[in-house]
Design a protein around this nucleic acid. Structure first.
Lengths: 247, 247
DNA sequence: CGTCATATTGACTTTAGTCAATAGAAGTGG
DNA sequence: CCACTTCTATTGACTAAAGTCAATATGACG
């Protein structure tokens, strides 16, 4: 990354701005306020820790490319991935108000993130108080996704949980233009999928084989193909409403 | 309920105000702003729906006494309780920005709630813009609890999940003065516990028997006694940090 | 006293986990 | 490009946790 920070001010937040506009129309002033946030880019390799659990952050980060995950490390040594972030998502907007971190954030693929300091956010909110409502909305959508994951984890089979996860990623990535030829880049290992779905890697492997056998997914290298998203949606009983993607 | 709405303006929000002060000190003005919110009280019997799934709310509610739960009804006919609210908690602060509701809210015991209209909140935020940060914090703590539940549901045994739930309620209720004689009022049926922990009622029953046999809990009528909270905390591997109760 | 909701029990099934080995793929240094 | 290490995926045999079904208690309540 040789780009200077200023170069990132515009494009880095484009997806964020487009997303926040789903909640309420943004004025030109507000858009400029968002655009002028200083964004510091940084790259991470898969598996690298972006935000450590228990840390006190003085900046929040946005995914520019790649996928990150929030993970909770439990005392038993096990861990649970509680959410995934795609381009345009804040990985830890809540760290603006909530400290210390109750979870870590890690790179689930090679990832480029943009860091925005809390004072800069504070500043922007002083100038544009209504944007606080937009950030609240972003946090609320985020929370809705966690609720969905909890319901799925508590009440569905391994097969359905994985189908659900693949569906969710499909629609979220599609919204930011990351779906091509009915598929998307997918660097998560089966072990990470296990941590995301509350299963063991072995059982994930077997469930994925079942999904493949049913023709619902095709995996190749670091890509996931979904020949018939409608069929996968049906298998997962997936309802995209909680993603609040419309508008 | 013969009380007029005005009578509730003061005391109904006392716990809320004390809680928000955990995030940042509130000015006298801000406290007055919160206190002058019109709060409309309403009582519900156990099992009654307070907020229907899919509805568009024009007010948010606060628990004044009793316990409520957020439930997600899945297409299979099953359901998952994704969180519990105790006195001083907003049951749906997020409905201020997020519509329609991705879950329902139901009374988990006989409950008294206070309803606050969104325009009134909007109004208060115009006057006291910094309070928006406090509400964000409240939502963030709420989200942290859901993350914890997800991790517990995904990675722990039935026995631990229930122990964890009883611990969480203990500390949350203690903070609002609802713990007496090492126990608290507890009206949840085993079926509700099953929905909260992602288990079946039969398995909840057996796990509770195990907790009783180990001397960790004593159940009597509508009360739960915890003779040795330290022992229960140890059994649950419970770490209260995510509740952000300090200060 | 009878009814309905809740709790409890027993017998059996299923899903998912465990352990351990093997196969494939990707990455590294020479 | 090869040899080697290291991850990651896959398989098999077995175990354990949790679910299912169905009956039976228990308890609150009108």
């Amino acid at each position: 990354m040789s780009a200077r920070a200023e170069e990132w001010q515009g494009p880095a937040l484009d997806h964020v701005i487009r997303k926040l506009a789903r909640f309420a129309p943004l004025s030109r002033d507000e858009i400029n306020g968002l655009r002028s946030l200083p964004v510091i880019p940084r790259e991470y390799a898969r598996g690298e820790v972006i935000v450590p659990q228990g840390s006190i952050q003085s900046e929040s980060a946005v995914v520019i490319s790649g996928i990150t995950c929030r993970t909770k490390h439990l005392s038993e040594g096990t861990r649970q991935i509680v959410s995934l972030q795609v381009p345009g998502d804040f990985v830890d907007l809540h760290s603006f108000v909530l400290k210390p971190m109750d979870h870590a954030v890690e790179a689930a693929s090679k990832v480029l993130i943009g860091r925005i300091s809390h004072p800069a956010i504070e500043d922007m909110l002083e100038r544009h108080p209504r944007l606080c409502r937009s950030l609240m909305w972003d946090m609320a959508v985020d929370a809705a996704m966690t609720r969905e994951w909890l319901a799925i984890t508590g009440r569905r089979t391994a097969y359905q949980r994985l189908a659900h996860l693949f569906c969710e990623l499909y629609f979220r990535l599609e919204w930011v233009g990351r779906v091509r030829d009915q598929g998307y880049d997918f660097a998560l290992t089966q072990e990470m999928l296990a941590d995301a779905s509350g299963l063991t890697p072995v059982h994930v492997n077997r469930s994925i084989q079942a999904l493949r056998a049913d023709g619902l997914i095709v995996t190749e290298r670091q890509r996931l193909m979904i020949p018939d998203i409608g069929a996968l949606v049906a298998a997962a009983n997936f309802d995209a409403a909680y993603l609040h993607l419309l508008k």
